[in-house]
Amino acid sequence: MYKNLTITSLLGALTIILGAFGAHALKKQLSVEAMQSFETAVRYQMYHVLVLLVINLYDGFSEKMKRTLTLLFTAGILFFSGSIYLINLFGVSAKSIWFITPLGGLLFIMGWSLLFYKFLKISLQK
């Protein structure tokens, strides 16, 4: 559990750092469209950091389930938000990594679907 919470805390801190960096250092360097894309990456990262925090503090999941959900959401953050950061911060061509962002979105969907399934299963048992 603490390993997952450590990862979550690190991702949370990085979210704040990247958000502040975007708001202050990138505002004049990026186009409005690129800035909106960057902000979307930061926002999705924070949403999923919060979900990771709840998942890993929830006593109703086994450690295996917590690890699986942590893996899905963390990989989703790395692929979805990470690819957008690469494009906007390092000038990586979106055409060269076009498949990575949607793959991150798919990992988010898989995580949320598994979360739905587990909560549905729990609610039907009660």
Rank of each mutant, 00 (worst) to 15 (best):
T70I: 13
T68Y: 03
M65V: 13
S62R: 03
L89H: 09
T74Q: 02
W112R: 07
S113G: 15
S113M: 15
I97T: 10
I84K: 11
M110Y: 07
Y85C: 01
G91D: 10
M65L: 13
K64A: 15
L114R: 12
T74E: 04
F80D: 00
E63Y: 03
L103V: 03
A75R: 03
R67A: 12
K95W: 06
T74C: 06
K66E: 05
F79C: 05
S96N: 10
G104Q: 02
S81N: 08
W98C: 05
T68V: 12
L107G: 01
I87T: 02
G82P: 03
M65F: 05
T70A: 15
W98T: 10
I77S: 03
M65E: 14
K64N: 13
V92T: 11
W112N: 07
G111C: 11
T101N: 04
S113A: 15
K95M: 06
F108K: 00
F108T: 00
W112K: 07
S81R: 08
G105A: 08
K64P: 07
L69P: 07
S81F: 08
L107Y: 00
F61N: 11
S93H: 04
G91I: 10
F73G: 00
I100C: 04
S113T: 15
M110S: 14
L107Q: 00
V92A: 10
T68Q: 10
Y85T: 01
F116L: 15
T101D: 01
G111V: 10
F90N: 09
L103F: 08
A75V: 14
L103T: 09
G104M: 01
L71K: 06
A94Q: 14
M65S: 13
S96H: 11
E63D: 15
L114V: 12
G60R: 15
L103A: 09
L86C: 13
I100A: 07
I97H: 11
F80R: 02
A94R: 13
G111F: 07
L107C: 04
E63A: 09
T74K: 03
F116P: 06
F99I: 09
V92I: 13
I100G: 06
G104D: 00
W98I: 12
I109N: 04
G76P: 03
F61T: 08
K95Y: 08
T70Q: 14
S113W: 08
I87P: 00
G111A: 13
L106H: 06
K66V: 07
K66A: 07
T74F: 06
L71N: 09
F90W: 14
S96Q: 12
A75W: 05
I109V: 13
K64R: 15
I97W: 09
E63M: 05
S62T: 12
T68D: 04
M110L: 15
L115V: 04
K66D: 04
T70Y: 14
N88C: 10
S96Y: 09
M110C: 14
W98G: 04
K64E: 11
I87A: 01
F73L: 08
S83G: 05
K95F: 05
F99L: 11
I84R: 10
L78V: 15
F108I: 00
G60T: 12
A75I: 13
Y85K: 02
W112E: 09
P102Q: 01
G60L: 11
K64C: 09
S96M: 10
F61H: 10
L69A: 09
F61G: 08
M65D: 13
E63F: 06
N88S: 12
L78G: 08
W98N: 10
F116I: 15
